[in-house]
Simulated scan of single mutants.
Amino acid sequence: MIADFVAGFARLIASYPEEIRVESHEGDEVTEIVLYANQADVGKLIGKEGKMIGAIKTVISGCKAKDGKSYRINVEPLS
């Protein structure tokens, strides 16, 4: 559910939305979400001074109150 939100949000921002891929690795306390994007889109997704990815993290932090898990998001270029 969270991974789908991140993917949908990233596709709205990206110049190459068809290349967005998201992987979710669930742990006991932390779920890591890895967002893969075209190299040209990585900067857009992070934003100036990390503001774009910070906004995504802020929205997702609300989910912590609901299910008690923490979420970590990483943006990586496609290889």
Rank of each mutant, 00 (worst) to 15 (best):
N38K: 10
E32Q: 13
F5N: 00
V42M: 06
P17D: 12
Y36C: 05
I2T: 00
V30P: 04
A3W: 00
A37V: 09
E19V: 01
I60K: 03
K51L: 11
S70N: 15
Y36F: 15
L12N: 10
D28Q: 13
D67N: 15
S24E: 15
Q39M: 13
G54L: 03
C63N: 12
L45A: 04
Y71N: 04
D4V: 02
E29Y: 11
K66A: 11
Q39D: 15
Y36T: 06
F5A: 06
D41A: 13
V34C: 02
G43N: 09
M1A: 11
D67A: 07
V30Q: 09
V42E: 08
Q39I: 15
I13G: 03
I13Q: 04
L45G: 04
E18R: 13
S79M: 10
V34Q: 02
S61V: 05
E18S: 14
E23W: 07
N38V: 02
G43R: 06
S15N: 13
A40M: 01
Q39G: 10
A37M: 11
E18C: 05
H25M: 08
R72K: 13
C63P: 00
V34M: 00
G68V: 03
K66L: 11
A7L: 04
I53N: 07
V42I: 13
F9Q: 00
S70M: 15
F9H: 00
G43W: 08
P77E: 05
I46C: 12
R72W: 01
K57C: 05
S79F: 08
P17N: 13
A10G: 09
H25E: 10
E26A: 15
I13V: 14
R11C: 02
I46M: 12
V6P: 01
V59H: 02
T58M: 06
A7K: 14
M1D: 04
V22K: 06
R21M: 12
V6M: 03
L12W: 01
R11E: 10
E49T: 10
L12G: 12
L45E: 03
G68T: 04
P17G: 08
K57Y: 01
L12C: 13
V42C: 13
L78H: 01
K48Q: 14
T58H: 08
E29R: 13
V22C: 03
S70F: 15
S79A: 14
Y71A: 06
A14K: 05
K57R: 15
E49I: 07
C63K: 12
C63I: 12
P17M: 12
V59P: 01
T31F: 05
A3E: 10
N74A: 15
V30L: 14
Y36K: 10
R72E: 11
T31P: 04
I56F: 05
C63F: 14
L78I: 11
K44M: 12
G8E: 08
A7I: 01
V30G: 04
S61L: 07
R11W: 01
F5R: 00
Y16V: 10
Y16T: 12
R11F: 01
V34G: 00
E26F: 06
L78V: 08
L12H: 08
P77H: 05
E19N: 09
